[in-house]
Nucleic acid binder design. Sequence first.
RNA 1: UGCCCUAUAGUAUAAUGGUAGUACGACAGAUUUUGGUUCUGUUUGUCGAGGUUCGAAUCCUCGUGGGGCAACCA
Length: 557
Amino acid sequence: MTDIKKEEEKSLNFLEEIVEEDLAAGKYKSILTRFPPEPNGYLHIGHSKSIVLNFGLAQKYGGKTNLRFDDTNPVTEDTEYVEGIKEDIRWLGFEWANEFYASDYFEQLYTFAEDLIRKGLAYVDDSSAEEIARMKGTPTEPGTDSPYRSRNMEENLQLFRDMRAGKYRDGEKVLRARVDMSAPNMQLRDPIMYRIKHAHHHRTGDSWCIYPMYDFAHGQSDSIEHITHSVCTLEFVPHRPLYDWFIEKLAIFPSHQYEFARLNMTYTVMSKRKLLQLVNEGYVTGWDDPRMPTISGLRRRGYTPESIRMFADKIGVAKRENLIDVSLLEFCVREHLNKIAARRMVVFDPLKIVLTNYGREEEMLPVEDNPEDPATTHRQVPFSRELYIEREDFMENPPKKFFRLSPGQKVRLKSAYIIQCEEVVKDETGKITELKCSYLPESKSGGTESNIKVQATIHWVSIVHAITAEVRLYDRLFRVEDPASEDGDFKEYINPDSLNVAVAYAEPALRKVKFNEHYQFLRKGYFYLDKDSSEDRLIFNRTSTLRDNWVKEQKKQ
RNA sequence: UGCCCUAUAGUAUAAUGGUAGUACGACAGAUUUUGGUUCUGUUUGUCGAGGUUCGAAUCCUCGUGGGGCAACCA
């Protein structure tokens, strides 16, 4: 009931409004969107905004979404990326109606081009790239006509066929649309439709040596598939008149382009070019390095598809430039993981404690797996006389608001007993090596007299039963909010401490950990088994820390 | 010195000529065997100047700020 109400109250974004209007006006019976990545890199969190938008629009209004690879530039593209992209989309939880490639349409696009030549709307230009650039003019000065602009139709047709037949070298000729060399919109100054590239294409092999440009492939592909709403990012706004021009002159299905502002996020970079640099120059270990904003990186780090979809939903869709705080992404993943992650106790920086009055060898204590789950299961955790606690959970001279262990003070060991610190043992350098504590037998968790109040509860692990695990603790990849907008090379702003590796002591239940299981290490954060793990070596990535008011409190002082 | 997009709390986003709301953040409190979670409360906003109107965040004009466009990239 409340959910329905919420749904009703939730306002539409401008694209949903357009779709609703089109549907209401009977313009379309159902809608068809597409997600059109170029297979020249891996998908990142910015793409997930587009994916959730395109697939979400179709889902919401009973339509469908095609996956179309925009593979018109053979030199940068590869099937490795095709496979990676498909995996990422599926992982995010979306299924496409059709898998298409712009290269599926090369023959059709070629026919379209000949059609435009016959109509006198395209011509072969022999000018060099430099000459074409010069004749293009500037934003404030009109361009000038190429001497080849007035070539007759038959000659253009023959030349274009010769281009396809491989008679010319790369760069010798191009096919251009004859639009308007003095248009205020630069995109309309006779844009290039085809260029010669004697290059191997990952799907069409060597069967073509001319390849269509984006502008002569994208809109036409949309039209061939009868895409109703072609949603892309803002930088293509100036291309829209050209998109419409080609469709009009070709008299083909009128797909329409709509633009939204791409996602920018603090403390990271979001362009494939920059991400590729980080990979190639060894700043990260790969596209799926857990510090990367890529889908594969986030997945490896322990993010869930649900959390990313929630994020995409929360950031909204509009046309103004934005810089989303990464803390919103972190909020989303905590929100989800808090509900599903099993709790475990792991000590990162151990301080030994000895319970001087604990007479038994050991005992097993039941500990709940997830307090958020009313039907939570319990596991048996071994407790014994010698334990590790977190070194930071003890202070010899604590400040006022420190609630944890200190000389003479009590804390509860989670799901076990309350202990009191009796003696601090140090080595010759003054470093604390051990704490001698007493425990309160009647304070046993769950017991009738266990309701004794103490200020804090801390996690622990039994030394003889502990297993070790490597934990990889990540921080933001960059030191500044918006590295791309800083002066100089963005790589100067990389955070040198974005990765910290430590060996931690874990309760034995963690020995049975499996891939795809999300854990909360009590009070330490959310963790996820890394693919680098092996039978005898557990490696965990910290997905995210927990919110920490104590850190804030300390900063105030 | 052109064309295009854009401007609402710290960050995003809604209000579609009629009470400026929501989320995250921040701050304060309650609860808590995680300084987590949960709950409650507080704080902060319509870029500027004119105009239209009974009434403007919304429409118009002129500024100003931000972004994009001059790849044989997408």
